[in-house]
Nucleic acid binder design. Sequence first.
DNA 1: CTGAAAGCGCTTACAG
DNA 2: CTGAAAGCGCTTACAG
Lengths: 350, 350
Amino acid sequence: MSPSPSRRKRHAQAASSAGVITLKQVAQEAGVSPSTVSRILNGTATVSVDKKAAIDAAIAKLGFQPNPVARGLAGGRTLSIGVVTQTISSPFYGEALRGIEDQLEPAGYIPIFVSGHWREAEERKAISALLSRRVDALLVLAGRLPDEELQALSLRVPLVVVGRKLQGPQLFSLEFDNLTGARLAARHLLDLGHRRIAFIAGDPAHNDALDRLAGYRQALEEAGEPVDPTLILPGDFTETGGLLAATRLLESRQPFTAIFAANDQTAIGAALGLHRRNIRIPDDVSVVGFDDLAPARFATPPLTTVRQSVYEMGAQAAGAVLSLLRGEAPQVVLPVPELVPRESTRRLLR
Amino acid sequence: MSPSPSRRKRHAQAASSAGVITLKQVAQEAGVSPSTVSRILNGTATVSVDKKAAIDAAIAKLGFQPNPVARGLAGGRTLSIGVVTQTISSPFYGEALRGIEDQLEPAGYIPIFVSGHWREAEERKAISALLSRRVDALLVLAGRLPDEELQALSLRVPLVVVGRKLQGPQLFSLEFDNLTGARLAARHLLDLGHRRIAFIAGDPAHNDALDRLAGYRQALEEAGEPVDPTLILPGDFTETGGLLAATRLLESRQPFTAIFAANDQTAIGAALGLHRRNIRIPDDVSVVGFDDLAPARFATPPLTTVRQSVYEMGAQAAGAVLSLLRGEAPQVVLPVPELVPRESTRRLLR
DNA sequence: CTGAAAGCGCTTACAG
DNA sequence: CTGAAAGCGCTTACAG
């Protein structure tokens, strides 16, 4: 008997995914060594023209697709990017993820989305799971992790952060111009003659929220209007938060003629709160949102808001990741925020 | 000089992710062989109590986390599940993905979401990318792939499909009870005295859409009402589709007192169409949606709809994947559809 | 320009 | 119950 002649077959079941072609088979077909195939695959060295042709032909003929898992193990690259999102089901993150996906796909990278749910511990866990899967880079959308922690993280893996101001050799961040956007929104209301303008804030742990509040204040100050703290209500970027805030505002009996909400979802919740008390938009109260996502466009009445392309933000962030991976300095140009007047605002009648 | 003494260090840069602990180090620390560590990790064999204790201690001490990439290569498992979604940014898919994520996470699996955008070619490409990454199973949400193709796919990899009726040894599918749900919605309108009830359909390539239409017809027939084909308008499950359909309906000058839309997004688009013509909901026309997602709850007025837990659907589908992976027959119990009456419908006044 | 060989970090028949 | 060894499918210094 020949000694263990079936050794080769031990892993037969690992290849259960049918007749998967390996690099080795391509090499055989092309009459070269696996190393050479690998090299042309990775553009890692110059290869003679005829061999390249033979290999290309073999790849095409066999329909070879390199196994990213093996590449990951051997080369330390997995062609996957870990993306830490907060609430995968919100329209905001949905748009951003779409931008990321669209940008990464043509480059051959695949995003792996994990939700942090605005909880520090969960974000940390998500990142650890992503790292253990050897993602090539990380893209963190907002969240509550301390800046220092992200800074430290970027020592281990290329990192792009949305909604912070951070930088480092392998660290890049980008932000909307929330301040300008919010000033636009508030000024729009001021221009329409509104003076008692309430603001429903976003999650205070979120830079965007802080900047939008600052923009609101600034616009009022620029117009020489006092900032009345009783008109500033807490919110959390959700419809429920907006509904609650509007209800509280109404109960406080503070006079007001307009509401500027920190995002569209908040504005829509607030609109419902007004509706419940038979207050009509825009006849009785004007409402402005922020983001210009689908819910704003299709609200009844359609919501005046500030357009920030969340999709573009996602795409640019993903582009920055790709730059970092190539060892280049990311170059991003975000579209400037723009006011989109629709039917939820109107001139104040005296 | 000793011959190539630095061989060992060649891959130093692969371990760039800092001091990653390997299984080998755990074995050393515990004084056992790597095989044994692997075995207790996988529960693959009974191991003596003392060794197990030593290994557990070593794992804890070193903070060892097995490398899924290596596990994938060696064992043929990657602990990742490929999920083909259609529009990652829609509220519907957002909810479903959340359910999937929540179900998979505690089991140690990670979902990899890829969008098919309702295009056959893209779905095919997505699946191929997922397979090349050696996902352990596939979860396909709706889409346009022919049943036969999915059937064939399930020969290669465990497959769960949402929104079809398919089965096989490694194939499982689950569906909402759309027919019942749609009958509930239409009957609600009939009970309120409506007779001229328009229906805005969903994407006809989608089973859900067909079943909802069938439910609408059935309810009318049961009530002895004629089904008027001029009151059945095409749609595509989007707000824009709903808006267009409502506009066309109005322009057709067909009399109607209620609209049943194939999903919430369509209903919201239709509501905007009515609003543009100064038709009030529910005073002039009643509107019913389907799904009960956030946009329905926070619409103005809040939308009467049929509740189908999309989240639960996602979670159950993911649960089915896990069952398949364990070699068990999936056991799913979907909540029954339920009518949620809100403010967009009211009794027809004569 | 190119091949042979070692290695990535695991898993798993084999053989006690 | 457990170890030594081969192998998963690649990549990459080394040495021509």
